[in-house]
Design a protein around this nucleic acid. Structure first.
Lengths: 219, 219
DNA sequence: CCGAGCTTGTTCACAAGTTCACAAAGTTGC
DNA sequence: GCAACTTTGTGAACTTGTGAACAAGCTCGG
């Protein structure tokens, strides 16, 4: 009755799968058909044991004495990550960042396409962003249904973010990528991932600051 | 001889400090002068014990029975994060993303300002991006010295990223924010933080995919 | 068909991070 | 000044993640 293999896969492992995928793509582009865990680890910037453990979670068969079959492993990771089909996304917030993301093709080739961009600002509605036309935020339910969207991207100001998240949840979106510097409150079952460049910079600054302090101490 | 307080602060705690800072700013804007760990936790989306433990690392004094003094705590966190002064940053890679980041003012008010933007492409050099003029990547050493830059931001393609990182390290930058989908190899002591939107989307997609699978299983 | 040589898959010990639970310390009302 | 109440700061249990080590298993040459 139980699935043959359905272990709980650790979050940390999931976060590394896209990196392995990237490395495997590089290897494939270079014509390599086999790779050992150590080679993959080198490319991914982690250690070999971790690679083997990560891959073992979803029962991918490497071959002892040989390594992993690059195309096969790539296929398995793609399947595991749901990269076998395209993911349509909607961006809410047609500001600087939102429009830049919409125009930026960098995800399209990785299986994600921005199929709609929306804003509350009436004056923006109707304007073009690349091939897309900005639509009004109130149409979210329609747009999501029409285009079968399951991923929402929030690029509004911090103040508007919670409202947008609520709307997204209401129309059935359960995966949200949030660029707004705000902590979103969503019901259980909805997954939010935050991308906050300022936080990343602050973490760098923290270490930079400490570095200066410790050096002063040594001298 | 040892500093009165210099415990090792966990990475996980450091990553939360900017979030606490943000929440405290909100509270301050709302005129609140006191906040309990539970209130802060609520705003930050974590649990109260975590807040207290995080704050205790750098010996911030809350008052038992009362809570934390908002302005004071804010000051302490700012100091700890090195937010008492401005951090000049250089962006290398004047493509879509690089120019968007340079124009985007969202970090300026958080203590980071983009003071230079560079590219290898001769045809881009000399063009304006907001108030900045794109300079040639070869001038990196000069620019860094002139403007006293300690943080580098990489927004090139994956292929060029490692070279840029090498250049940055060579001219003395030890904190790098990397937007390129590549694993950078840097010497010990140099800190790299990666921001990869595609990876975030892939993590969302993984869970979305699983969600569909588990629901099918239940039925 | 066998032995040498690799590389995986897994176990185990340890490190990092989280949560609980509670004593200590402060405040407020009487 | 004391009792009731609130909230911090922290030791200890627990959970999650990492890295080393090694047995099991595969390939290949002879």
């Amino acid at each position: 009755m139980s699935s043959p293999r359905r272990r709980v896969i650790p979050e940390a492992t999931i976060a590394r799968l896209p990196i392995y995928q990237r490395c495997l793509l590089e290897l494939e582009a270079g014509g390599r058909t086999k790779a050992s865990s150590e080679q993959l680890a080198e490319l991914a910037g982690v250690n070999g044991a971790k690679v083997r453990k990560d891959l073992s979670y979803f029962g991918t068969y490497g071959t002892r004495g040989v390594g992993y079959d690059v195309p096969h492993l790539l296929h398995e990771i793609r399947r595991e990550l749901g990269m076998t089909h395209d993911w349509p996304c909607v961006i809410v917030g047609a500001g600087n960042l939102g429009t830049a993301l919409a125009k930026f093709g960098g995800f399209t080739d990785r299986g994600f396409s921005v199929v709609a961009i929306m804003d509350v600002d009436e004056s923006k509605v109707g304007q073009k962003v690349g091939a897309l036309t900005i639509r009004h935020e109130d149409d979210l339910a329609d747009v999501v249904a029409e285009l079968d969207i399951s991923i929402g991207i929030i690029t509004t100001t911090a103040g508007a973010a919670q409202d947008v998240a609520d709307q997204m949840v209401e129309v059935g979106i359960r995966s949200i990528l949030n660029f707004a510097p705000a902590t979103l409150d969503v019901p259980f079952g909805v997954l939010v991932r935050d991308v906050d460049v300022a936080i990343e910079l602050q973490i760098l600054a923290f270490h930079e600051e400490r570095r200066v302090l410790s050096e002063a101490e040594i001298v």
